[in-house]
Amino acid sequence: MSGYQDKIKETAERLLKEGSVEMVVGFRKGTLPMMNEPCFIRRPEDVRQLVWDSNCGINLANYLTDRKEKIAIVAKGCDSRNIVTHIVENKIKREKLHVIGVPCQGMVDKRKVAAACGGDIEAVTEDGDVLSVTAGGAVQTLSRMEMLQENCALCAHRNPVIYDELVGELVAEQTGIDRFAEVRRVEALSPQEKWRYFEDLLAPCVRCYACRNACPLCYCPTCFVEESRPQWVGKGQNPIDIRTFHFLRAYHCAGRCTDCGACERACPMGIKVRQLTSKLNKDVLDMFGWEAGLTLDQRPPLDTYKPNDPNDFIK
């Protein structure tokens, strides 16, 4: 993967130098280990900041919304699918983009690593599947594959969907993965158990909206949670309002969510918010055979009305 990093720098430098883009959106080292942060490079000399490793989980498509200048963006599979969605939804124009595609092998879940090491992480290096983690002064080695974010472990679209150039060979897509086992488990619960489950799931929420802000799909000028007339959702910590927020947010992502995991990664309380979007992803796949962000030619199924839309759920 270190090859990727050099290729990214090289490409970014070339693009900026030849002036074909005004800005390159990529990752640079963050202030904390395992916390790479988005960066916006406008000068060729700054490309050395760019990095690529297993800590680039943030969805960079989020930074493209309504940009007018010509931008190059480093995009792994899920970012590229959100770029597609962005183009379809008029958030950015294809011709204003230069997509530097990154065939992805999954991002590492910092919480999993922390739990495995049992202490504050001081440094991490990776080599193939081996993660060397320094925590509490001691170095431990972990399997990268075992530390993947859940959405990455279940990812079926690691390769970018659209790109202008690639930084490496396309990777083999994962096969034989059961993406919706967890959804089915919840679906099978009795109504009472389900109620308990969602009550517990959302109980820790502090309404910080980090999940929303990390999500490239959430770009409305005024989010429904902030509207006051009508006030769709109460502002406080009332559990009903919390649930309303999460349910409605999930519905707004139906047919558009790429399961990039940005929401879950951003949640300071560790809430598995993907549980809600995954359910809708499953339904949309079952009913419409649709996965978000794979084509520029079609709007998501919930954006269209067809008389023969599936309606077996109405009895």
Partner: peptide, 21 residues
Amino acid sequence: QANCSSCGVCVSICPYSAPSF
């Protein structure tokens, strides 16, 4: 229009082609 995000759902979903950009 102040609240519109130009996402185009309305343009796509309307059976009567009433919305446009």
